[in-house]
Amino acid sequence: MADMYPKPLSRLIAAFEMFPGIGRKMASRLAFHLLTMDDERIQYISESIRDAKAGLSYCSVCCNITQKDPCDICSSGRDHSVICVMSSVKDLMAMERTCEYDGVYHVLHGVISPMEGVNPEDLKIKELLRRLDGNVKEVIIATNSSVEGEATAMYLSRLIKPFNIKVTRIAHGISVGTEIEYADEATLIRALKGRTAI
C-alpha cells in the first residue's frame, strides 16, 4: 500500500513506524498530520529531536539520561551504598517524584523478553555489575511485577548474590497489571518501604 504514496511520504511513514507501539495505520495518520502543519512547527519538532539527541547521553555510572556526566543524582551527596535498579528512565522519574528515596539508581533500559528478542546482554547489566564494589550494601530491584519484570529481577538477583550484597525486591502493593510509571506516589512509597529480600 505504501508504494502508492510519493517516496518522501512513504519514507516518513516508515520513520514513524520505528517507534514502539506505532503500527502502519497510526504512522500514516501522524505522517499526514505532519503534512498539514506549518513550517514553524515542523522546524520546532525537527530541532527538538536533533537537540535532544545531541545534548543528552547516558550517565556513565547509572545509565540514566543526562545532560552532564555523571548525572545530577550520581554526583550528588546521596547514599551511594544503595542502588535501586529500574527498567526505564520513566520509572526512575516516577520513583524520584516520591521524594522518599535517598540512594542512587541504575537504569537497565528494558527487561528480559525472549519474545521480543531482548536478552540479558541487551540490557545495562554489565554496567551494573561493574559498580558492585565494597561500598555497595544493598541493591533494590524495582522492575515491574509483569512476567518480564519478575524474570529480570530473578536473573539479576542470581548474578548479584555471589557479591555478598543484600538484594531486595520492591513489594508490589500495586494491583496486578499496573505499571510503575502510572502508580500514584502513595502506592510507590508503600511498595518501596515494604521491599523484601529475594
Binding site: S113, P114, M115, G117, N119, P120, V147, E148, A151
Partner: peptide
C-alpha cells in the same frame, strides 16, 4: 516467553541458563 526462549536456544542462542528462571 519460555517457548520463545527455547526456540532461540535451539537456534544457537547462548541464554540456556535463562530457561531455569
Amino acid at each position: 516467553q519460555k517457548n520463545a526462549l527455547l526456540k532461540s536456544v535451539y537456534e544457537g542462542g547462548k541464554n540456556r541458563d535463562l530457561i531455569e528462571i
